Simulated scan of single mutants.
Amino acid sequence: MTTYYELTGFQRDLLEAIAGVDDEPYGLALYLDERYADPINHSRLYQNLDQLAELDLITRDELDARTNVYTLTDAGRQELQQQADTLASLCERPRPVVGGDQQ
């Protein structure tokens, strides 16, 4: 099974985008456009979506002849949840004071 850390940064962003807009087929492009300064190459986008589908992290369904809808699988949702839990626990840790007066 693929872990979150084995994915590329772009693939991680895709999982987050799909989780955030899973009921809006056109929302994926809008979400990514807001996150990246340069336009997303369609070839790069669809190659990465295909890889995530092959890893069983997302499913792809046809909305119509020209539009696909992507949703997280249970495995994809679990990977995002584990990452969210890890980040939340890191934020709860006390932070050391660096460079302050030591008395």
Rank of each mutant, 00 (worst) to 15 (best):
M1Q: 10
T2D: 03
T3M: 04
Y4Q: 12
Y4K: 07
Y5M: 03
E6W: 02
L7N: 02
L7Y: 04
T8P: 02
G9A: 13
F10R: 07
F10M: 03
F10A: 08
Q11D: 05
Q11L: 00
Q11P: 01
R12H: 03
D13I: 09
D13M: 12
L15N: 09
E16N: 07
E16K: 10
E16H: 09
A17F: 02
I18V: 15
A19G: 12
G20L: 05
V21G: 03
V21W: 00
E24R: 12
E24T: 07
E24H: 08
Y26L: 10
Y26T: 07
G27Q: 01
G27I: 03
G27D: 01
L28Q: 01
L32A: 08
D33P: 00
D33A: 13
D33Q: 14
E34A: 04
E34V: 00
E34M: 08
R35P: 02
R35Y: 07
Y36P: 02
Y36S: 01
Y36C: 03
Y36F: 13
A37Y: 06
D38V: 05
D38S: 07
D38A: 13
P39G: 11
P39S: 08
N41Q: 09
N41W: 02
N41G: 00
N41I: 02
H42W: 10
H42Y: 03
R44S: 11
R44H: 11
N48Y: 03
N48E: 11
L49P: 11
L49R: 04
D50C: 02
D50H: 12
L55E: 14
L55W: 10
L55V: 03
D56Y: 05
L57M: 14
L57Q: 08
L57E: 06
L57D: 03
L57A: 15
I58N: 05
I58Q: 04
I58T: 09
R60A: 14
R60C: 00
D61C: 08
D61T: 12
D61E: 15
E62C: 08
E62H: 12
E62W: 15
E62T: 12
E62Y: 13
L63K: 10
A65E: 13
A65Q: 12
R66D: 11
T67V: 15
T67Q: 13
T67K: 02
T67A: 06
T67R: 12
V69K: 10
T71E: 12
T71R: 15
T71Y: 06
L72A: 06
L72T: 00
L72V: 04
T73W: 01
A75G: 08
A75V: 00
G76E: 06
R77H: 08
Q78N: 12
Q78S: 12
Q78T: 13
Q78H: 15
E79V: 09
L80W: 01
L80T: 08
Q81T: 15
Q82A: 11
Q82N: 09
Q82I: 08
Q83D: 04
Q83I: 00
Q83C: 01
A84K: 07
A84W: 04
T86L: 14
T86P: 00
T86R: 15
L87S: 06
A88V: 01
A88Q: 10
S89H: 09
S89G: 01
C91V: 04
C91D: 13
C91R: 14
C91T: 06
E92S: 14
P94Y: 01
P94G: 04
R95N: 05
P96N: 03
V97P: 05
V97N: 09
V98M: 14
V98R: 15
V98N: 07
G99Y: 05
G99S: 09
G99N: 06
